[in-house]
Design a protein around this nucleic acid. Structure first.
Length: 420
DNA sequence: TCTGGGGTCCTAGGACCC
DNA sequence: TCTGGGGTCCTAGGACCC
């Protein structure tokens, strides 16, 4: 038995936490550079604001009705951690599936609905974030159950138990094929062309035929809709296979120093993630691209992968390689809009030299340097210590003009409460 | 003027091995 | 005239997720 706990409109709910006056008002949250709408409150959805809408295309009249936020990942990440921490107390095994979703193993629970209600109530009370809970014998059905609960189609409030549905077939028939977890636009189109337009039709399809037509992924999905679990709970997070840090720039960048500064930042961040995961990188890919939407100039995008003699965890090595790469990719005269650093093919960081010609003394010194850097930044805040080459060029930093305070992760942003 | 970021899995085909 | 069988590894591309 699986439960899926999914936070309702997570980012807007986070924003409301310290702004209870925003309850009932339409809220949208924007992507990096305040580019696109990436989250909406129910009120904003009701106004017809689509997901992914470029913010500048929102008509000014609607914009004025809306409370608009830049995304504040420090806030969302911290609140997510708190929600997951509460969920941990409800099941022996949980799978944190995304920033706002978590599967729980409810096997053996006598009263799943009661338990689901306790989960929703406790998360709400302890963190202030509203959640819905879908319960079912497979993850795919739990996803659907959760969706129905969110739409208010459950007699049990924020909780819906699939096995208690009066007419599951009719329910499945009411779910468009693209709304099933694992079926996107492409497959949705192909399925529709084959006469399969809703979840019920997917369930009715012969799983072996689904495999023939689409591969094993869709076959599993077919079984899951039939109530046979094929997607186990992944309680242990497998280590990352790659780390990507990339950003669109706040403005077009056409100078090498600014690009060096940007990739220094990206490589630094990639190094932090790498060490936090206990992984090391055998190579580094750096990429840049110009504005893909500018009809006046040709689009240019290029990437370069540079190997390390020995897989590394050292930010200094990552940065050197990233700068070397960007200098080779750079073409004078181009106006770049985006760059990034990718660490592919990660492997476990193993102690000791792994190469006959390695310099163990220097390696240990580098490891200690990185450990000190991470410890200082952890204690005093990210970016307390930075690499100088990050600061020699500007103009690439993101725009985020509507950011709320990081009320749970910065002392200076602690809210003040006045008693009257 | 203004268009996000970060991941995973599966499959097919080619190269190569014995 | 006739030309095996069984396997691994790697990569690129396509699909998906939030």
């Amino acid at each position: 038995m699986f439960a899926l706990a999914d936070c309702n409109n997570f980012y807007p709910s986070c924003e409301r936490l310290f702004r209870p006056d925003l309850e009932g008002r339409p809220i949208i949250v924007l992507s990096n550079n305040d580019g696109c709408v990436i989250a909406r409150s129910n009120e904003a959805k009701a106004l017809g604001i689509p997901m992914g809408l470029p913010f500048f295309k929102l008509d000014p009249k609607q914009r004025r009705q809306m409370v608009v936020y830049s995304s504040n990942y420090a806030l969302y990440g911290d609140l997510s951690r708190r929600v997951m921490q509460v969920l941990t107390t409800f099941a022996p095994r949980i799978e944190v599936y995304s920033i706002d979703e978590c599967f729980l193993d409810l096997s053996g629970v006598a009263d799943p609905i009661g338990e689901g209600q306790r989960i929703a109530r406790t998360v709400r009370q302890w963190t202030g974030i509203p959640v819905s809970v879908g319960i079912a014998p497979t993850k795919t059905l739990a996803k659907l159950a959760n969706r129905l609960a969110k739409k208010g189609q459950s007699p049990d409030g924020p909780v819906l138990d699939w096995s208690r549905l009066e007419d599951p077939a009719a329910t499945l028939a009411g779910i468009a094929v693209e709304d099933v977890w694992g079926i996107g636009q492409r497959w949705g189109k192909r399925l529709r062309a084959l006469g399969i337009a809703d979840a019920l039709a997917v369930r009715a399809a012969e799983p072996r035929w689904l495999r023939q037509q689409f591969g094993v992924v869709l076959e599993r999905l077919g079984w899951e809709l039939r109530g046979r679990s094929c997607l186990p709970l992944a309680a242990l997070q497998p280590p990352r296979q790659q780390i990507l840090v990339s950003r669109s720039f706040g403005a077009a960048v056409s100078t090498l120093p600014a690009l060096r500064a940007a990739v220094t930042r990206f490589a630094t961040r990639a190094g932090e993630k790498l060490r936090a995961q206990g992984r090391c990188a055998p190579a580094l890919t750096v990429f840049i691209q110009t504005d893909p939407f500018d009809p006046a100039r040709p689009f240019y995008a290029n990437a370069l992968t540079l190997p390390f003699a020995i897989p590394t965890q050292d930010s200094a090595a990552l940065i050197r390689q990233a700068i070397r790469g960007i200098e080779r990719l750079f073409r004078p005269g181009d106006a770049y809009r985006k760059a990034g650093v990718l660490l592919p093919d990660l492997r476990a960081a193993e102690p000791g030299p792994s190469d006959l010609f390695a310099d163990p003394i220097a390696d240990q010194a580098a490891a200690r340097r990185m450990a000190a850097l991470d410890a200082i930044n952890r204690r005093f805040g990210r970016d307390t210590l930075r690499v100088a080459s990050e600061m020699i060029g500007t103009g690439w930093q993101r725009r985020a003009g509507r950011m709320s305070p990081s009320s749970t992760t910065r002392w200076s942003a602690l809210p003040t409460v006045r008693a009257c």
